[in-house]
Write a protein that binds this DNA or RNA. Structure first.
Lengths: 104, 104
DNA sequence: CAATCACATAAGTGTGTGCTTATGTGATTG
DNA sequence: CAATCACATAAGCACACACTTATGTGATTG
């Protein structure tokens, strides 16, 4: 039901870059900013959006907050995509049967 | 490279509804409007956005324009998702090996 | 326990987005 | 060939969104 929040979250290129960075390994918000030219509040706000979309989850560690990819968001997205598997190109056609399990 | 246009296109719930309707079978813009409470220009603009994202393609048929799902958009999306397959939940874990083919 | 650090939140601002009404365009029809 | 139909485009408007600066909050540190 929060497909909306997922797609809205990923519609921003900065947020996709953050997600991509976290996919390479969990880290805290300060580490995420390195080499990104983004203010601290902006990063915090982006992480909040990604978190609400369940694409990312946080874990307090002292005065740091460690962020990592939350598989739940990707799973919801995969479920959305699975509805249209009839239109997936032949090249990944073999996925069809396996994805049937995702429908329940 | 037009991941951006794809996610931006799908970030709007009306556009996702249009896409979903087209996934059930191609039809023209007027038929799409039926039961949707959306103006003709709005529909035309939405279809333009979906088309630029390669989620939908058109085909002139007389004075009608028939729209249908373009697999190319879904394929690009699947390719984006495949980059993060490490985080896909265990339930669809079996997809991993197959998705390796999508990396090339 | 005051200072500092890591991060969140508040409030304001410029730009993007989705809608509207009006008009344009290409094809069919009588 | 004028009228109509199916759709696209133009222009304007209200609102959402991503950013900014300023301040708040909770944990560590000397």
């Amino acid at each position: 039901m929060n497909e909306n929040e997922i797609f809205r979250a990923l519609a921003d290129p900065t947020r996709r870059a953050i997600f991509e960075k976290l996919a390479a390994g969990g880290m805290n918000a300060s580490a995420l900013r390195e080499g990104m030219e983004i203010s601290q509040p902006a990063m915090s706000q982006h992480l909040g959006v990604l978190r609400n979309a369940r694409l990312v989850r946080e874990e307090r560690q002292g005065r740091f907050v460690n962020y990592e990819v939350d598989p739940e968001g990707l799973a919801l997205m995969a479920r959305w995509m699975a509805k249209y598997r009839n239109y997936w190109p032949a090249r990944i056609d073999a996925l069809r049967d396996l994805l049937k399990d995702m429908d329940q």
